[in-house]
Simulated scan of single mutants.
Amino acid sequence: MRYDIIVVGAGPAGLTAGLYGGRQGDNVLILEKGRVGGKGLEIPYIENYPGYKKVKGMVLIEKMKEQVSPLVDIKELEEVKSIKHENSKFIVTTTKNKYLSKAVILATGTTHRELNVPGEKEFKGRGVSYCAICDGPLYINKNILVVGGGNSAVQEAIYLKSIGCKVKLVHRRNKLRAEKYLQKKLKDLNIPVIWDSVVEKIRGNNSVEEVVLYNKKTKEKKIVEVDGVFIAIGEIPLNKLARDLGVKLDKRGYVMTDEFQRTNVQHVYAAGDITHTPNQWIVACSEGAIAALTAHNDLLRGQK
Rank of each mutant, 00 (worst) to 15 (best):
I5T: 04
I5A: 05
I6W: 01
A10F: 02
G11R: 11
G11I: 13
A13L: 05
L19T: 06
Q24Y: 01
V28C: 10
E32Y: 09
V36C: 07
G37F: 03
G38W: 01
G38E: 03
G40P: 00
E47V: 04
E47F: 01
N48W: 07
N48D: 13
P50F: 06
G51C: 14
K53A: 09
K53V: 09
V55P: 08
K56P: 00
M58G: 00
I61Q: 06
K63Y: 12
K63A: 15
P70H: 08
K75F: 05
E78I: 09
K84R: 14
H85Y: 14
T93E: 12
T95D: 13
K96D: 07
Y99I: 07
Y99S: 09
L100F: 02
K102S: 15
A103Q: 08
L106D: 11
G109T: 04
G109Y: 01
R113N: 07
P118R: 10
E120K: 13
V128C: 09
V128R: 06
C131M: 07
C131K: 06
C131I: 09
D135M: 05
D135Y: 09
Y139M: 12
I140M: 12
N141R: 12
N141V: 02
N141I: 02
N143F: 03
V146E: 05
V147A: 04
V147C: 01
G149W: 08
N151F: 04
V154T: 10
V154Y: 05
Q155R: 11
A157L: 12
Y159H: 10
K161M: 10
K161N: 13
I163W: 14
I163E: 15
C165I: 01
V167H: 01
K168M: 06
V170H: 06
V170A: 08
V170Y: 11
E179K: 10
L182W: 09
K184G: 02
K184F: 03
K184H: 06
K184Q: 12
K187W: 03
D188Q: 15
D188L: 15
N190R: 14
I194E: 12
G204R: 02
E209R: 01
E209H: 02
E210G: 03
E210S: 13
K216A: 05
K217I: 15
T218R: 12
T218I: 09
K219Y: 14
E220D: 13
K222A: 11
E225L: 15
V226R: 01
G228C: 14
I231Q: 03
A232D: 02
I233W: 02
I233K: 05
G234Q: 00
G234C: 01
E235M: 04
I236T: 15
P237N: 07
P237G: 11
N239L: 04
K240Y: 08
K240A: 10
K251L: 00
R252K: 15
Y254E: 03
M256H: 00
M256K: 08
E259T: 14
F260W: 01
R262H: 03
T263C: 13
V265A: 01
Q266A: 08
V268N: 04
T275N: 13
N279F: 04
N279D: 06
Q280E: 15
V283H: 10
C285M: 15
C285Q: 11
S286N: 08
H296C: 02
N297G: 07
L299F: 01
L300D: 05
L300I: 09
R301D: 11
R301C: 08
G302M: 13
K304C: 00
